[in-house]
Design a protein around this nucleic acid. Structure first.
Lengths: 101, 101
DNA sequence: CTTTAATTTCGGAATTTCCCGAAATACCGA
DNA sequence: TCGGTATTTCGGGAAATTCCGAAATTAAAG
């Protein structure tokens, strides 16, 4: 968990929002898109793409950046990739920030 | 307190370090440079410049960026500008991060 | 096997950030 | 007022980031 990488990841409005959306998917995504959220898989890339209003490639880039620094995790199921928050890592991050600053 | 501005400010190694150095100046700056730290003024730009190993102009830029997003505050005394942490703002930031993520 | 949908990878133009040196400004002391 | 030190402002080249579209990849479905 590189503190500086995390801050770079979070210094972009869309990426911050993705993390917030994934905290409460039910609040931020249409119900019919959330069948797999209930299975604890997360939300798939195309749903996040729609919500973000960016191109699929950019959204995919952002998601893998967030994943690289540990904030979210991916599960591939068939042709879909589901992303959800890594709550453990986020808790660790909060503690790290508390300690460092 | 713009969360995104704060993250941009913190996505640079030197600026992170400045915040950490200012948390415990006695630990990070030579004793003879700290007369004014005891007066609760903070640490002056040239001391921070030496420690950072960057040019005075860059250091000055960084300090005013950190100030703009509220993380530190400046006191001008004669020809010196002293910077110290804004502990209140940093506490607020921690809470904000806790709440948002 | 072919088509179609979901996602990722890659190349690149536009924009922003990094960090410097030169110049300007602020302030003090002689 | 003049010279010297501390700091800030400004212009800009180099490097990184933003975000796209095209192409490649993966996988389901017909």
């Amino acid at each position: 968990m590189e503190l500086i990488m995390v801050f770079k990841a979070l210094s972009n409005e869309t990426r911050i929002n993705i993390l917030i959306w994934l905290k409460q998917p039910r609040l931020h995504f249409p119900a019919e898109e959330l069948q797999d959220y209930d299975a604890n898989l997360g939300v798939c890339v195309s749903d996040i793409t729609k919500k973000a209003g960016l191109s699929p490639s950019t959204t995919s880039d952002y998601l893998s950046l967030l994943q690289k620094c540990g904030l979210i995790e991916a599960t591939r199921v068939g042709q879909w990739t589901y992303y959800k928050r890594n709550e453990g890592a986020i808790k660790t991050l909060n503690k790290l920030i508390q300690k460092a600053f």
